[in-house]
Simulated scan of single mutants.
Amino acid sequence: MGSIADNMGVVTRRIQKATMAANRPADSVRLLAVSKRKPPEDLRAAAAAGQKAFGENYLQEAVEKMDALADLPDLEWHFIGPIQSNKTRDIAARFDWVHSVDRLKIARRLSDQRPDSLPPLNICLQVNVDNEDTKSGVALADIPALADAVLELPGLNLRGLMAIPDPDQPEASLRQSFRALADMLGRLRQAHPDAKGLDTLSMGMSGDLEIAIAEGATLVRVGTALFGARENPQQT
């Protein structure tokens, strides 16, 4: 692979091309650099190339990077991994976004533990859009009730939905999965027209970002195409 700066350029052009092909505004899709298992210097290189938003899966690793990059105050930190109850306090205090809220208990803890000195925590509800037994997330049918409850929590700003569809399914099925997520966000907007958020579809990764953008993604999570393969991708 090329340098991280070169990779940033390639991915940015892919996003721009896909956005144009979908007849969407040029600034309607954001890039989230998925930096788990990558050293702080890689994130620093991406930041030097203009990247501000970084997604991390593991709390302790993320905190170490935050401390190492504290001289870059404009970075935006997104937690995108499974959430354990004993980790919510630090997640609530250190992150700007959480994409992986999949139960009300976790949402309540994040709300209660969000420091008063910080703005409400931006969150997405994680949807198990393909009903996979091995995936975290809420069934589509259960999203409206969970969203209703989360919108009442003062420490949170419900921004939208996140999903990780099976990347190995046929393209037609993948499109259907992305479309189902977009349709559900539309339903939530109709049900809650006064909600301040509900503007985010976090879906699409290195291999399928064009399809996700065509189906309405507003934020794509890209790691491998930016930073290269991880040495231990199966480690959790």
Rank of each mutant, 00 (worst) to 15 (best):
D194E: 15
L185M: 03
S136V: 07
V150N: 02
A147M: 02
E171C: 13
L188R: 14
I164Y: 01
L209I: 14
L174V: 05
S202H: 04
L185V: 09
E210T: 04
D148M: 05
S206F: 13
H192D: 14
A214W: 01
M203W: 08
E152C: 04
A147G: 00
A145Y: 01
S177N: 13
A147D: 00
D148Q: 06
V138I: 01
S202I: 01
A214F: 02
A195D: 10
A141W: 07
G207T: 12
A217I: 07
A180V: 03
S202W: 06
M203V: 13
P167Y: 01
A172I: 09
A141S: 14
R187G: 02
H192C: 14
V138R: 02
S202P: 11
L198P: 06
A141G: 11
M162Y: 00
D208F: 10
G160Q: 11
A163T: 02
F178N: 08
E215W: 07
A212S: 12
N157H: 14
I211H: 08
S202E: 11
A145D: 07
R159Q: 09
A212C: 08
G197R: 13
L181D: 07
I143K: 00
I213Q: 11
G186W: 13
R187H: 11
P165R: 02
I211W: 11
G155L: 00
M203G: 07
Q176S: 05
P154G: 11
P170V: 05
D168F: 09
L198F: 08
S206P: 10
S136N: 09
N157C: 13
L174S: 04
L185F: 05
E152D: 02
A214C: 01
S177Q: 08
E210P: 12
A163C: 15
A147F: 04
M205K: 12
M162T: 04
G197Y: 13
A182V: 09
V150H: 02
E215K: 06
L140S: 05
L158F: 07
S177R: 06
A149I: 03
L188P: 03
N157R: 14
L181Y: 12
A180T: 07
R159N: 05
I213V: 05
Q190V: 15
H192P: 14
G160E: 05
L151P: 03
D194H: 06
L158A: 06
L151R: 01
P170W: 08
A195V: 10
Q176G: 12
V138G: 04
L158R: 06
R187P: 04
A182D: 03
G216W: 03
M205V: 12
Q190D: 15
